[in-house]
Simulated assay, not measured.
Amino acid sequence: MPVFNVTHSDPSTFILMGIPGLESAHIWISIPFCMFYIIGLIGNFTLLLVVGKEQTLHKPMYLLICMLAITDIGMSTSVVPKALCIFWFHWQDITVCGCLTQVFFLHTVSVMQSAVLVTMAFDRYVAICNPLRYSTILTNARIAEIGVVGLIRAVLLILPMPLLLTRLPFCENYIIPHTYCEHMAVAKISCGDITINRTYGMIVAFVVTGFDLTLIALSYGLIITAVLRISSRKTHQKALNTCTTHICVMLTSYTPCLFSYMTHRFGQGIAPQVHIFLANLYVLVPPMLNPIIYGVKTKELRDKVGKYACRT
């Protein structure tokens, strides 16, 4: 793998500052970081354990929940341990290869998570609009195939990002004012032209977020149309209640992501600390809340989790 053109005493490393201006409060900021991370790990690993152990949960919907849990674990784990090392031990160095790997892994998992959310919307569409064909349209094997396609899409879209970073000169600026290596955070410290990086980042954001949200909106438009054709109000409510869990998860996943993206590219007047907090909320809050939302809103899953909790 090629290395950056960095001219300083140790060209193989960069420095992650954490949250600039709040260095004295790093130890206090680390407390919610650590708590959110641990809660997220416990919740997501619990979902994976319960679904893996229970044969009755080996269904497309629960396989999608497991895929979401894996992306949540990957997203938070790619960022939080290094951030805690910065806050607790001032281990701010990160190698060039480590920085590139973090950029690639974090963004790939993010794109993969978006694909999972789209598939979940399609799952709800089939369950409500074509319930009699649900078991033939969405099989476990098909869910696995969709997951592989989503992973390939994520890798192909994100792979150019670290490659584009390797072509940038960094002169004597090797300090990244962030808690982790994010594509544009790294590009902005370059002394070269980052137009291509900006453009490609916007293209990926449009292709992923714009396209995926359009598919989700289309799925829910068809769901609402189908539900409105049903005369029974009780059936209306029952059908829409099956979608509320997915809608809550989408809000927790896409909202911090969109705010972080907008402040990074268009919020020149916003304090950098605000942007860094938003960027960290994106990798901390969804992984913590998603298993809680599914545990509370999905009765079958909640009952199985309760059964295992009682055993212990």
Rank of each mutant, 00 (worst) to 15 (best):
Gly221Met: 08
Val207Leu: 15
Glu300Trp: 02
Thr242Leu: 14
Gly295Ile: 07
Ile292Gln: 07
Cys66Asn: 15
Val227Ser: 08
Pro291Ser: 02
Tyr200Pro: 04
Lys82Ser: 08
Ala121Lys: 09
Gly40Arg: 03
Ile31His: 02
Gly295Gln: 09
Ile223Arg: 07
Phe105Glu: 01
Val111Cys: 07
Ile38His: 01
Thr139Lys: 11
Ile29Lys: 08
Asn5Leu: 14
Pro177Glu: 06
Val155Phe: 08
Val186Lys: 04
Phe211Ala: 10
Ser231Thr: 07
Ile38Gly: 01
Thr245Asp: 06
Leu84Gly: 06
Cys310Thr: 10
Val249Cys: 15
Pro287Glu: 08
Ser76Arg: 11
Thr263Val: 15
Val208Met: 03
Arg311Phe: 10
Ile196Thr: 15
Ile31Asp: 03
Ser9Asn: 14
Gly210Asp: 10
Val283Asp: 05
Thr139Pro: 14
Gln113Gly: 15
Thr7Asn: 14
Asp10Cys: 12
Thr245Val: 14
Ile270Gly: 06
Gln113Phe: 00
Met61Arg: 12
Asp10Leu: 00
Leu213His: 06
Gly192Arg: 07
Phe277Ser: 02
His236Ser: 11
Leu64Asn: 14
Gly21Lys: 05
Leu159Ala: 13
Pro291Gly: 06
Thr312Ala: 12
Tyr261Trp: 12
Thr13Asn: 13
Pro272Phe: 00
Tyr254Val: 14
Leu48Trp: 09
Tyr125Glu: 02
Leu49Thr: 15
Leu41Ala: 04
Thr7Pro: 02
Ser9Leu: 02
Val207Glu: 08
Leu165Trp: 11
Val149Tyr: 10
Gln113Glu: 12
Arg229Phe: 03
Val274Leu: 10
Thr108Ser: 15
Pro81Gly: 02
Glu145Pro: 00
Val96Lys: 04
Val6Arg: 12
Ile230Ser: 11
Trp88Met: 14
Gly40Glu: 02
Ile276Val: 12
Met250Gly: 11
His8Ala: 08
Ala217Asn: 03
Val118His: 04
Ile19Trp: 03
Ala25Phe: 05
Leu165Arg: 12
Lys297Val: 01
Gln102Ile: 02
Trp91Lys: 13
Phe89Thr: 14
Val274Trp: 04
Ile39Gln: 07
Leu278Trp: 08
Leu68His: 05
Ser9Asp: 13
Leu240His: 02
Gly43Trp: 11
Gly201Ala: 01
Leu132Arg: 10
Phe45Pro: 06
Val80Gln: 04
Met202Glu: 13
Ser135Asp: 13
Met250Thr: 12
Leu157Glu: 08
Lys188Trp: 00
Leu165Ala: 03
Ser135Leu: 00
Val3Lys: 06
Gly306Tyr: 04
Ile194Cys: 04
Ser24Cys: 11
Met184Gly: 07
Phe206Cys: 13
Arg153Asn: 15
Cys97His: 15
Phe33Asn: 08
Ala154Glu: 09
Tyr220Leu: 01
His264Tyr: 14
Ala154Lys: 09
Ile143Glu: 10
Pro60Arg: 09
Ala271Leu: 10
Val208Gly: 07
Gly98Val: 05
Thr56His: 15
Cys34His: 03
Asp212Val: 07
His8Cys: 13
Pro272Leu: 06
His107Cys: 09
Asp212Arg: 04
Tyr180Ala: 09
Met1Glu: 08
